[in-house]
Computed example of a mutant assay.
Amino acid sequence: MSTEIDATAQFQALVADPRHRRDDSTAMVEQYYALVGDVYRESWGPSQHMACYGPGQSREEATEAHEKDLADRAGITADSYVLDLCSGVGGPACTIAAHTGARVTGVDLVADRVREAQDNARKRGLEGRVSFRVADATALPFDDSVFTAAYSFEALCHVPDKHRAHREVARVLRSGGVWTGYDWMRAAGPQADEVAETICRTHGLAALATLDELRQGLAAAGFTDIHVSDGRDLGDWAPNWDLLEKLTAELPPRDQLPPVLRMMTDGARAACAGARSGDFFIGYWHARRTQEEP
Rank of each mutant, 00 (worst) to 15 (best):
Ala117Val: 14
Pro46Ser: 10
Ala249Arg: 14
Ser145Asn: 12
Gln256Tyr: 09
Lys162Arg: 11
Ser152Glu: 12
Val159Cys: 06
Pro92Cys: 10
Phe280Gly: 02
Ser152Met: 09
Pro252Tyr: 12
Asp143Ile: 04
Arg133Gly: 08
Arg167Asp: 10
Glu127Asn: 12
Leu156His: 11
Ile96Asp: 11
Thr63His: 01
Leu156Ser: 10
Thr63Phe: 00
Asp79Met: 03
Ala137Gln: 10
Thr77Ser: 13
Arg254Pro: 10
Pro18Asn: 09
Ala9Glu: 14
Glu64Gly: 02
Ala111Met: 09
Glu250Cys: 10
Arg254Lys: 13
Asp119Thr: 15
Asn120Lys: 13
Ala98Gln: 14
Phe142Gly: 11
Arg276Phe: 05
Ala16Gln: 14
Asp143Tyr: 05
Arg215Leu: 07
Glu245Ser: 15
Gly204Asn: 06
Thr26Ala: 11
Trp285Thr: 02
Pro190Gly: 01
Ser152Cys: 14
Asp24Gln: 14
Leu214Asp: 06
Glu4Gln: 14
Val178Tyr: 00
Trp237Ile: 07
Ala9Lys: 12
Arg232Tyr: 07
Arg122Gln: 13
Ala207Tyr: 00
Asp242Asn: 13
Pro294Ile: 01
Asp112Arg: 06
Tyr151Gln: 04
Ile226Arg: 04
Asp24Asn: 13
Arg201Glu: 09
Pro190Glu: 00
Glu292Lys: 05
Arg232Leu: 09
Glu168Ala: 03
Thr290His: 11
Lys68Asp: 06
Arg269Tyr: 07
Ala7Glu: 14
His286Ala: 04
Asp242Ile: 10
Ala249Met: 12
Leu211Ser: 01
Ala219Pro: 01
Gly283Ile: 03
Gln191Trp: 01
Ala192Gly: 03
Ala93Cys: 07
Gln291Gly: 02
His163Asn: 13
Glu30Cys: 09
Asp225Val: 01
His49Phe: 05
Gln216Ser: 10
Pro18Thr: 03
Cys272Leu: 05
Ser131Thr: 15
Leu243Lys: 15
Gln31Tyr: 02
Met264Trp: 13
His66Ile: 00
Ala71Tyr: 03
Asp236Phe: 07
Lys162Asp: 07
Ala9Asp: 14
Ala270Cys: 02
Ala249Asp: 15
Trp44Ser: 03
Glu61Tyr: 01
Gly91Tyr: 11
Asp112Thr: 15
Gln291Val: 11
Glu127Tyr: 08
Arg41Lys: 08
Phe11Trp: 13
Trp241Gly: 11
Ala62Glu: 02
Tyr53Ile: 02
Gly181Tyr: 08
Cys86His: 08
Thr138His: 11
Arg269Trp: 07
Arg288Ala: 07
Asp24Lys: 13
Asp72Ile: 11
Gly37Asp: 09
Ala155Trp: 06
Cys86Thr: 13
Glu4Met: 14
Ala165Tyr: 10
Ala13Trp: 09
Tyr53Ala: 03
Ala149Phe: 06
Asp119Cys: 12
Arg201Phe: 05
